[in-house]
Write a protein that binds this DNA or RNA. Structure first.
Lengths: 195, 195
DNA sequence: CAAAGATAATTAACATTGTTAATATAGCAA
DNA sequence: TTGCTATATTAACAATGTTAATTATCTTTG
């Protein structure tokens, strides 16, 4: 039964890997039972031996993408000195990950979560992701007396929603309608909130 | 040919009305060529004589819903005296419209706009909607020297994204996971931004 | 090792959807 | 009445999610 578990996880992994590639490459709309299964090297019905339904499979990708995004953010911000500037850089990298892979943006924020299985935990994972990426730096700011503890909480909440709103308008409604305007607006907003 | 135009508009109106009812009642997912046409009293193929595709029809509902939302907001805020408090009330009513009719939220912010027909103008209509609802009151605040002109612009931008982010997390990711928490968080955020 | 039983994978099938082509119908001009 | 044009409908197709029926594969045991 231990072997069984290993094999099951391996099989799930094949489908998840295939789904991730499709999401990053072609976007969420290209993910279907058939397309995933074909890429994984199995029949579309086999998928249902390992996942409740397609939605279930799709949301299993969230953790993987978060890990990937975290690596991306770290690689882009490693050299920056601790404090506000690093936080700004982290946020910037976070946003750019979703812009580079719009499919992950759709998955994280747009795709409807049907079913109540791990809905709660997954949505919480998404909700708190940016906060977690910055956690260490906020602690640094508090410890170094750069910002008051209470103010930090305010800023974090403010950031969570602002970044989300900007991303949504840019990715889904093309507002602002070009990348440069978006980037400068983003920097302005971050600066305004963090000061 | 004037008659022709009237008739065409009337036909489009039947389909639009049907789509609107479905969106408000059952949500966007329940809107299909078949369901709309049945409700309008025509065959599903007839729809294609009046709209490029289903997406086209769906986005023609945006203007109607905005008008409806504006009426809703006005009726809820008519009695409030001009100034900051009225702006807060307008925003609150705006948010509550989308919470009362989640289908309209999906349409305005989540639904993918395929095709480039009136994409730009429609997305701009959506992007600027909250701003337009508050326009008169911001003018009032400026004229009465309640807030500096430059600060108003900052606040409006900030509000646009924050409200959007909150709505997205609440409607799509159930964060916060109950209405009361959401409502108080919303008020906090609005107060923080407007002061 | 071979047969039986369990497990997993595949094919077939169904219902739903968006969309288009072929067909029918209605309105109207001559 | 008879054509012609505009409009509406039915038929059909391809893609999709999902389930049931059928095979293939693996495991266990005699």
């Amino acid at each position: 039964m231990d072997n069984k578990e290993i094999q099951t996880q391996r099989m799930k992994g094949y489908f998840i890997q295939a789904a991730k590639e499709l999401i990053k490459g072609e976007g969420l709309k290209s993910v279907s039972t058939r397309s995933v299964a074909e890429r994984a090297g199995y029949s579309y019905a086999t998928l249902y031996n390992y996942f409740k339904d397609l939605n279930d499979l799709i949301f299993e990708c969230v953790k993987d993408f978060q890990a990937e995004c975290e690596v991306f953010v770290n690689s882009k911000t490693k050299k920056i000195t601790n404090g506000k500037e690093k936080i700004k850089a982290i946020i910037s990298a976070y946003v750019h990950y979703f812009i580079e892979y719009p499919g992950t943006f759709e998955l994280f924020f747009l795709e409807r979560m049907r079913g109540i299985g791990n809905k709660k935990t997954t949505s919480e994972l998404i909700y708190t992701f940016l906060d977690r990426l910055c956690e260490e730096q906020w602690q640094y700011c508090i410890n170094e007396n750069i910002i008051y503890t209470e103010k930090v909480q305010k800023i974090r909440t403010q950031l969570r929603f602002t970044i989300m709103g900007m991303l949504l308008f840019y990715e889904n409604r093309l507002q602002p309608d070009n990348y440069n305007d978006f980037a400068t607006l983003l920097n302005n907003q971050i600066d305004n909130i963090i000061e």
